[in-house]
Amino acid sequence: MSAPDQDAEVPDHPPLFRFDAVTVDLDGVRALDGVSLSLPDHGVTVVVGPSGSGKSTLLRLCNRLEAPTTGHIAYRGQSLHALDPRRLRREVGMVFQRPVVFPGTVRDNLLIAAPDRDDDALAATLVRAALDPALLDRDASGLSGGEAQRLGLARTLLTAPLVLLLDEPTSALDATPKRDFERTVLELSEQGTPVLWVSHELAQVHRMTDRLVVLEQGRVVLLLDDPADLDDDPVVSRLLAPEADDGSR
């Protein structure tokens, strides 16, 4: 028998995701370069960095939309590679930057995620995503950008995810729908769903962050556990444009 595991990095509550020297090459370009990182299993972790810094790749690794070229990733203490990818993807839900609307009604869109749900369950999910349940019969192609993004969130919620990955989900939204979307996600986080949120806006980072990961050229250049440190940090102020603060985009 082997001796009891004395490795302090295998605690009772393993991190949500743990990256060990993860490198990703996409079409000959190094998207992530030796990233080692532990993300906690609670709150909202915001990932920021200039475009091309590897934010989306980091997020997409978490539900295996990308695979590491080298290195290892663990999800709640289990090797990501050893898990059933389909179960993992339903457990680790993803909302994309551009809202994806499938042909058909809002109901058709929701049934893609959960074909056996009845209208009551679908309506309840719309409410959770702050959408009017009367939209079920509406042609989904006629939704506004904000509504379409919420529909994407509702569709993801139908797989009963334990974790949410959000890849710049509000970048195409105006100020009001953006704030509404943020509020919904904060509520989900408070109800116990850990969130990984890719953003490029300083103001949004202020509103959402429990913990900040800053990427540059595929490497982690800063980790902040206390959002109060945000204001004084030279890396943050260099990388995040203050003109996006007014949320008027």
């Binding site: 539900n63 939309l65 389909r86 179960r87 993807r89 339903r90 839900g93 993803m94 994309f96 551009r98 994806v100 499938f102 893609i112 995620a113 994407g152 569709r155 993801t156 797989t159």
Partner: peptide, 13 residues
């Protein structure tokens, strides 16, 4: 592409 990725992310085969 976007539709296909969204389906895969929802756990489709």
């Amino acid at each position: 592409r976007a539709e296909v990725e969204a389906r895969i992310a929802l756990g489709h085969t």
